[in-house]
Design a protein around this nucleic acid. Structure first.
Length: 557
RNA sequence: GGGCCCGUAGCUCAGUGGAUAGAGCGGCUGCCUUCUAAGCAGCGGGUCACAGGUUCGAAUCCUGUCGGGCCCGCCA
């Protein structure tokens, strides 16, 4: 990687300059190499001279000159070094090096872009984790897209990744009981009986749908049951049905969790009690007003939080503390939770609980994504009759398809509110970025088909001479392809999968430009071979990129 | 009242302290006898909310103000 080569070379040059007494700086400045804002400046750029100027008492351009004189760069990678502007050192990559990456990409195939950054550390991404009291909505869709793509990214940079779904199914949960009671009421109503919905009942149409299904399959056999047992049965049924639906929605979205973890299992196994004891023994709790409190303020929370209610029933936080304890007991080196914006208030207390249990706060990363608003023709959409104001993920999927939904959910950074334009996502025109990207892949496949049909052999890696790829469009495409590992690296390091949708668009653009200006199949045998090889490399990178996003790469459109 | 996120082109948003701040959409204008026009080219478009501060250098970091969203339970 040129970037790493440059950083190493600059480091060495700085050391030499110091040893020779040309620069007096003692401090070890972090050496940065970045992309210049304007490509005409070069492929890479270093600001080192500017950061050293003040301390060395020399003008930054002078410092740059000293550094450049000490620089020793492999000419086959970096062909040109120059000082520009206030003291930037700009580098241009040797086209030879770019041309060689075609072969490297083709040899590595699906592994191109992999790295060892994660060093095989085990890492868990927990995402979606919706309450079993209703179907998944668009917010969950965003979480699913982010979580799944992030998991792909982290696996690509060398982590051992587990995807987990936390089922909030605690039997003591008031919400679940309420939901069960709602289903019971709808069931009785479906059988023509008088029944009142509970006070904070679930009025969405999906509850009635489930009730009707129960009537169809089980008839009126619950009527005779004692009230308490019946409620229990319906609570169980409600949970089960919703969970089935959630699994089906995720499957339709192409998201698969390795592990579905039941909150209730923490109570059954005694893990909640154990975690509470640990917190007590560590002196992180106290009793007040008949409840057990966590001293979360010790770890920066704005107030202490209840762990066990006056009723003796543990809170969600108690279970969550036990849950995270369990994650670390299972040996995860790093745990990432992806939550909706309505949970941001729980970040501080959860991190507090984790620290009180003796773990480094840095081992837990909580990503909060902001809300999704659906638009159609400039109007906010409330699509679902079944769930009131909530727009269901399944509705969006049947409307625009999984690929478009994934891409749109991943177009913005998690921090940013997402306006999802359904019309645009449905369009089969270049305005729609997901089609734009997929079309590039379809075009690639079309060229390869065309070549085969006309009897032109696709060269194996190494069979083409890439040095004939000198057109500006070809070099621009090569640069984009060569960028891929660095893009993956930073998207993974920053936990920002949305960077890859942007990269996908840029890569597709570079390919379309190449396609327009450079005819692949021509009478010039060597050029045809080299360009076919470049097309194959483009296909590899586009596929790898789309795989990280969880989006298909169609061969025809 | 407090917390979190956001404020950048008409709209939706990128932008890991660097050079003349970018993309897509929308608008207008061109380009198909040639590997997919689901493409390409061109034209417009900016007080980076505002005010201070830190820095050689700020859209980016800090403080404050204003505006928008979400949240603030011994619910989950």
């Amino acid at each position: 990687m040129p970037k790493q080569i440059l950083i190493n070379a600059l480091e060495k040059a700085l050391l030499q300059a110091r040893q020779k007494g040309l620069l007096k700086n003692e401090q070890t400045a972090e050496i940065q190499v970045q992309r210049p804002s304007d490509a005409s400046f070069g492929d890479y750029s270093a600001n080192l001279a500017m950061t050293l100027a003040k301390e060395s008492g020399l003008p930054s351009r002078k410092v740059a000159e000293i550094l450049v004189a000490e620089l020793n760069l492999p000419p086959e990678v970096i062909e040109k070094t120059e000082i520009a502007g206030p003291g930037f050192i700009n580098f241009r990559v040797n086209p030879q090096w770019l041309q060689k990456t075609v072969e490297e990409i083709r040899r590595k195939g699906a592994d191109y872009g992999n790295s060892e950054t994660g060093q095989g550390q085990s890492l868990q991404v927990e995402f979606v984790s919706a309450n079993p009291t209703g179907p998944l909505h668009v917010g969950h869709g965003r979480a699913a897209a982010i979580g799944d793509s992030l998991a792909h990214l982290l696996a690509k940079v060398g982590y051992e990744v587990t995807r987990e779904y936390y089922i909030n199914d605690a039997a003591t949960s008031t919400q679940i009981r309420n939901f069960g009671a709602s289903l019971e009421a709808r069931y009785l109503q479906a059988l023509g009986k008088e029944a009142k919905m509970p006070e904070d009942g679930y009025h969405g149409e999906y509850v009635s749908d489930i009730a009707k299904e129960v009537v169809e399959k089980e008839g009126d056999r619950f009527l005779e049951m004692p009230a308490e047992e019946r409620l229990e049965q319906f609570t169980l049924l409600a949970k089960q049905k919703i969970l089935e639906g959630q699994r089906a929605d995720l499957a339709a979205f192409g998201v698969r969790h390795d592990n579905w973890f039941r909150e209730s299992s923490l109570f059954e196994s005694g893990a909640v009690e154990a975690a509470l004891n640990l917190l007590r023994e560590g002196g992180h709790t106290y009793e007040a007003e008949g409840a057990l409190w966590l001293r979360s303020t010790d770890y920066g929370d704005e107030k202490d939080r209840v762990l066990v209610r006056t009723t003796g029933i543990p809170t969600y936080l108690a279970a969550d503390a036990a849950y995270h304890h369990d994650k670390f007991i299972r040996g995860f080196d790093k745990v990432i939770d992806i939550w909706g914006p309505d949970h941001h208030g729980y970040v501080a207390r959860t991190k507090a609980a984790v620290q009180a249990l003796g773990y480094d706060a840095e081992k837990l990363e909580i990503i909060i994504h902001q809300i999704v608003r659906l638009f159609s023709g400039g109007e906010v959409v409330r699509m679902s009759k079944r769930a009131g104001d909530i727009v269901l993920l399944s509705d969006v999927l049947s409307e625009v398809g999984a690929d478009a939904a994934r891409f749109f959910f991943l177009m913005r950074s998690a921090d940013s509110h997402l306006d999802f334009d359904l019309e645009l996502a449905k369009k089969e025109t270049p305005d729609n970025p997901v089609y734009y990207v997929q079309y590039a892949h379809a075009r690639i496949c079309s060229i390869l088909r065309q070549a085969e049909e006309s009897g032109v052999k696709i060269p194996q890696p190494g069979e083409a001479d890439p040095s004939v790829l000198v057109d500006e469009r070809e070099l621009a495409l090569l640069r984009k392809l060569a960028d891929f590992p660095e893009e993956v690296e930073s998207a993974a390091a920053l936990y920002e999968p949305h960077r890859m949708t942007r990269y996908a668009q840029e890569l597709a653009n570079a390919f379309h430009l190449f396609y327009t200006d450079c005819r692949v199949l021509s009478d010039d045998t060597n050029l045809t071979k080299a360009r076919l090889s470049l097309v194959c490399a483009s296909q590899v990178v586009l596929q790898n990129c789309l795989a990280l996003l969880g989006i298909t790469a169609p061969e025809k459109m």
